[in-house]
Design a binder for these strands. Structure first.
Lengths: 222, 222
DNA sequence: TAGATTGTTAATCGATTAACAATC
DNA sequence: TAGATTGTTAATCGATTAACAATC
């Protein structure tokens, strides 16, 4: 099952955004940042920012703020992004392409070093500089390259067998973009990404926004 | 600010997954589904499933289960996915391609009808059957095609100006894949998608999994 | 009637928010 | 000292889980 429950999920999900903003500030030569500025950037209340940053263990200076560098280091340490984990990606379709093309992952402790596919037309090609191998070579390559993570971008129907192959090859963590919940042994961790889930939230927000405007501006028409 | 707060977020995020599974069952001719089966599929406790389904308003039959069709309809109604909303997408890079290429959105009440980009090399091309227009034509096309939603897939630096253009053109909802929080007027709803956030969660899960195995199998070595 | 499942009510748990003292 | 911000403690709120009666 590998049913690890993570606490402070909302905070953890925001950490990459802090990291991005802080890196920008660092590049711009800014050394100190205080809660109000981050609150404005994140569109969140100040108290949320302070609680979020507390998770990393850094302490700021009352009346002043936090050291940008310290925060960057602490977030990267908290997420274990100090030395990038190497990953392989299975499924060189359009989503696979998109993930292979995203440079930002390097900053996020993720290095996708190879791709795999079952389609003979794709095997042997290069996608954003990474070779696409025959899926049959998965186990071999994973062991050879000492890969820890697997990213699944295949259609739902094939996702479980790909996961099984990854597990058999010794992978410890799976980032699953396919539309199924995977069954894996306890020592393998799975994170499922449901992009449509975000769209569902947007849809509900839209409905609420309509309802609100109906209530607050009822007689705008005449 | 448009700071709409949505309750039962976790449930809402799972609805598309139920919808997918239920549609599969429907196609396979299954008429009734009970909690235990969904619990197995979702890797969740039965009580979670029942609470999730309750949000849609359908009532099942004790001892039997829920009607698959009823659930499908109710979920689609709840999310207002009965008649698809039309959307335009800005930024025909690799992520834009991936979203344009994802067929599943049709089932999820989303119809991306056109794309926009600033790159002259991309303008005029077709991506998965949709034309890529000059970003300068955004307002015109949005009004002409009566578009309600905008999807932002441009680099963080350009995201705010794209959002401003969308708002000016009359768009009511923005799905934002760029690495910034957008500022929009109150009547415009924004949903930000931080894909790296999922990876952050995976990273924390991995750490916890390591810590667990350290604790439970301490003397495996000898 | 027996077995299975729903759906309600209550209990627990964690996350969010508020207030404010401590610190620079 | 005055102003700003941190970080702690407590209060509120909502989500998750458990127990079980009601229903088929």
């Amino acid at each position: 099952m590998a049913n690890i429950k993570v606490q402070k999920m909302p905070t953890i999900r925001r950490l990459p955004t802090y990291l991005y903003k802080l890196s920008e500030m660092h590049k711009a030569g800014v050394g100190i940042v205080a809660t109000p500025e981050l609150a404005r950037y994140m569109n969140l209340a100040e108290i949320v920012i302070r609680k979020d940053l507390a998770i990393t263990g850094v302490s700021g200076q009352p009346g002043v703020g936090y050291k940008v560098c310290e925060l960057i280091d602490a977030i990267r340490r908290f997420l274990q992004w100090e030395n990038p984990a190497s990953a392989i990606l299975v499924g060189a379709g359009s989503l696979g392409h998109a993930l292979l093309g995203y440079d930002g992952f390097e900053d996020y402790g993720l290095k996708i070093i190879a791709a795999f596919d079952a389609d003979p037309d794709k095997i042997g090609t290069l996608v954003h500089g990474r070779e696409v191998f025959d899926i049959a070579l998965l186990a071999e390559k994973v062991r050879e390259l000492k890969v820890e993570l697997g990213i699944i971008c295949v259609p739902a129907t094939y996702a479980q067998e790909v996961a099984d192959a990854m597990v058999a090859a010794g992978i410890r963590g799976i980032w699953n973009f396919a539309n199924v919940s995977l069954k894996t042994p306890d020592h393998v961790v799975v994170q499922r990404e449901v992009i449509a889930g975000g769209f569902a939230v947007l849809s509900v927000k839209l409905r609420q926004s309509m309802e609100n405007s109906d209530r607050t501006e009822p007689e705008l028409k005449d």
